[in-house]
Amino acid sequence: MNTDDRTAGTPLTDSEADARARQLIAEAYTPTTYRDDSPVPAYGTAEPVAQPGRPPMSQKATDISTLMLSGSVAALSVGGATSLVLYVLGTVSPVTLSIGAGGSVALVLAVGSLLKAAGGAAASLPAEHHHHYNGPVRQTNTTVTTTTSTKAVFARTNVKGGKR
Score class of each variant (00 low, 15 high):
residue 27 E to H: 11
residue 28 A to S: 12
residue 29 Y to A: 09
residue 31 P to E: 07
residue 32 T to Y: 03
residue 34 Y to M: 11
residue 34 Y to D: 10
residue 36 D to V: 01
residue 36 D to W: 02
residue 37 D to F: 09
residue 38 S to R: 14
residue 38 S to Y: 05
residue 39 P to A: 09
residue 39 P to F: 04
residue 39 P to C: 03
residue 40 V to I: 14
residue 41 P to Q: 08
residue 41 P to D: 08
residue 44 G to R: 03
residue 44 G to L: 03
residue 44 G to M: 04
residue 47 E to A: 15
residue 48 P to K: 05
residue 50 A to W: 15
residue 52 P to I: 10
residue 53 G to I: 06
residue 53 G to E: 05
residue 55 P to E: 12
residue 55 P to M: 11
residue 55 P to F: 10
residue 56 P to N: 08
residue 57 M to Y: 05
residue 58 S to M: 03
residue 60 K to Q: 15
residue 61 A to H: 12
residue 61 A to L: 13
residue 62 T to F: 10
residue 62 T to A: 14
residue 66 T to M: 10
residue 67 L to R: 13
residue 70 S to H: 06
residue 70 S to F: 04
residue 73 V to Y: 12
residue 75 A to C: 08
residue 75 A to V: 12
residue 75 A to D: 14
residue 76 L to A: 15
residue 79 G to P: 04
residue 81 A to M: 15
residue 82 T to E: 08
residue 84 L to S: 14
residue 85 V to T: 15
residue 85 V to N: 09
residue 86 L to A: 14
residue 86 L to G: 06
residue 87 Y to R: 12
residue 90 G to A: 03
residue 90 G to S: 02
residue 91 T to M: 02
residue 94 P to L: 01
residue 94 P to F: 01
residue 95 V to C: 01
residue 96 T to C: 00
residue 96 T to S: 08
residue 97 L to N: 00
residue 98 S to P: 00
residue 98 S to L: 00
residue 99 I to H: 02
residue 100 G to H: 00
residue 101 A to V: 07
residue 102 G to S: 06
residue 103 G to R: 04
residue 105 V to K: 01
residue 106 A to G: 03
residue 106 A to M: 02
residue 107 L to T: 01
residue 107 L to K: 02
residue 108 V to R: 07
residue 108 V to W: 03
